[in-house]
């Protein structure tokens, strides 16, 4: 009798829990006057924290410019890279501006705006390294560092199956480890590696080569990540990206960081 009651209660609760997992919300009735933006804060020069604990970087400046363009009040939160997509899905923030590439694997989980930049991957090695080219044979058995669950980690494993690919929580940790001599090579975005190699910390190492991005892994460049169903916000952001490209804000921001155009090729007409 009592057990029967338990089961009834259980069934009701379980139904409540499980029956709803895939329902998708539309943002049609949201006004989006306030948007919470998630970023990582450990990926210079795109997003990082300076010594006073303030968020800086290309991603951050672009996000601020987009918010100004959309006349939206934005607040920033930081989130570790490997929890980025769940945190977006769970509503910890509304838009993900963290140098995330638009890949097919990620598009199954979340939506993306059009790209706001696209740069190729590259490999760096210590200056005294015997490795002269990036092939599976030369990197066989070598320890390659990359950031966990990035396109670069995935590409490293695909391109160099006989290497030992180690995945670090942030880009800064693999840099520390190649500076210490724990790694034989590291793989990341060419801009990220370049920035580091120019700094004092990167004096240990040199760029080995820039690789061609495999679209199957790297997708269509870097976009702003959004929850599926937030179509209104997507349209607002896509329009804002076009607007800041056209009114010169984008160029002004990128000139403070880079001496070349990080936007890459114009996307093919759809």
């Amino acid at each position: 009798m009592r057990l029967a009651q338990s089961f009834a209660l259980a069934a009701a609760l379980a139904g409540l829990f499980a029956g709803t997992a895939v329902a998708q919300q539309s943002d049609a009735d949201k006004d989006w006057s306030k948007v919470v933006i998630g970023t990582e804060g450990a990926y210079p020069p795109f997003n990082f924290l300076d010594a006073s604990g303030e968020l800086k970087g290309f991603d951050v400046d672009i996000a601020k410019a987009l918010c100004a363009e959309m006349k939206v009040e934005c607040t920033f939160v930081t989130q570790d890279w490997d929890g980025m997509i769940p945190a977006l899905q769970n509503g910890n923030f509304d838009a993900l501006v963290a140098s995330m590439s638009i890949t097919p694997e990620r598009e199954e989980q979340i939506a993306f705006t059009n790209k706001y930049y696209q740069t190729p991957p590259a490999i760096a090695v210590p200056k005294d390294s015997e490795i002269t080219e990036a092939t599976d044979a030369t990197l066989s058995g070598k320890a390659i560092g990359a950031q966990v669950s990035t396109t670069h980690a995935q590409a490293a494993a695909a391109l160099f199956p006989s290497a030992d690919v180690r995945q670090y929580p942030t880009a800064e940790e693999y840099k520390l480890d190649i500076e210490n001599g724990r790694l034989d090579a590291v793989m990341d975005d060419v801009v990220v590696l370049d920035e580091w190699l120019k700094s004092d910390a990167g004096a240990c190492c040199k760029l080995l080569s820039t690789l061609t991005a495999d679209p199957a892994i790297y997708g269509k460049g870097v976009g702003v990540g959004l929850r599926k169903g937030d179509d209104k916000l997507k349209t607002m952001l896509d329009d804002a990206i076009v607007a800041i490209r056209e009114n010169g804000t984008y160029d002004k921001i990128q000139k403070t960081y880079f001496d070349f155009d990080v936007y890459g090729k114009e996307p093919a007409a759809q």
């Binding site: 089961f7 209660l9 259980a10 609760l13 829990f17 499980a18």
Partner: peptide
Amino acid sequence: AIGLWIAVAAA
């Protein structure tokens, strides 16, 4: 209490 656990298990 046990109903909650059964619910969790069922879910």
